[in-house]
């Protein structure tokens, strides 16, 4: 296989000017035809191995694409759906009935999720004030969903959640993500929305799913613009 100079420079993680100098100095095996320079893949690999140089074609690009697939709040929320009038007397029972709402998880996974979420609550409450809580697990589930999911549960009546401002909580955003990176991404977006007082007031009116999504979409547009 013949390779162009640019590819070779990329595979060795070196600037093109270094490769040009090495050609001039005769340090790298090449095949010349006229004024053009060609590299043979096999010869280069052998050469790189004898010199302990790392040589990999196109292996590095894979990492760069992840940020684009982190996804938006709206898509995560629409996957998780919105539930109203979720029952519960205290934090544990409210959380239990909220977890039971998540229909795409099997029962034993629901149990596991609940356990882990309670564990996280014991560390510190996820009630972040203004009557809002974002229950989540400390680490991703052993078999997490492929894409992040936020299930929104408006409670039948506000419950005591040991929130930081001691206000009773009226809405739970259950956040389930495949990786910590996804989790942080969505958490930062969600907390951006919640910081807005008007949005809190909007939430306290227990809006329906469509209204909520469109409101969130507006926030996300603001975020993307900056």
């Amino acid at each position: 296989m013949k390779l162009p100079m640019q590819t070779v420079a990329g595979a060795l993680a070196l600037p093109v000017s270094t490769i040009e100098r090495w050609i001039r100095q005769g340090r790298i095996p090449i095949q010349r035809s006229g004024a053009d320079v060609a590299f043979s893949h096999a010869a280069l690999e052998k050469w790189a191995a004898t010199h302990n140089l790392s040589f990999s074609l196109g292996g590095d690009q894979a990492d760069d694409h992840i940020p684009e697939t982190l996804g938006s709040l709206v898509s995560a929320m629409s996957r998780g759906k919105v539930y109203h009038r979720v029952a519960g007397e205290d934090a544990a029972t409210a959380l239990r009935s909220a977890v039971d709402c998540i229909d795409f998880l099997s029962e034993d996974i629901q149990d596991e999720l609940f356990e882990k979420m309670m564990e996280r609550e014991r560390l510190a409450s996820t009630g972040i004030g203004n009557g809002i809580a974002i229950p989540h697990t400390r680490d991703p589930l052993p078999r997490p969903p492929e894409t992040p999911v936020i299930t929104t549960c408006f409670l039948e009546k506000p419950v005591n959640f040991n929130a930081i401002d001691d206000q009773p909580v009226f809405v739970l955003f259950l956040l389930i993500s495949p990786t910590v990176k996804h989790h942080l991404h969505l958490l930062s977006r969600l907390s951006y929305c919640i910081r807005d007082r008007a949005f809190v007031a909007f939430l306290s009116a227990h809006p329906d799913a469509v209204a909520l999504y469109s409101r969130i979409a507006e926030f996300e547009k603001q975020l993307d613009d900056i």
Partner: peptide, 14 residues
């Protein structure tokens, strides 16, 4: 990084 690569290529003993 570059210094190492340069040295490795320069001191070939094959």
């Amino acid at each position: 990084d570059q210094y190492r690569k340069e040295l490795m290529v320069q001191t070939d003993r094959y």
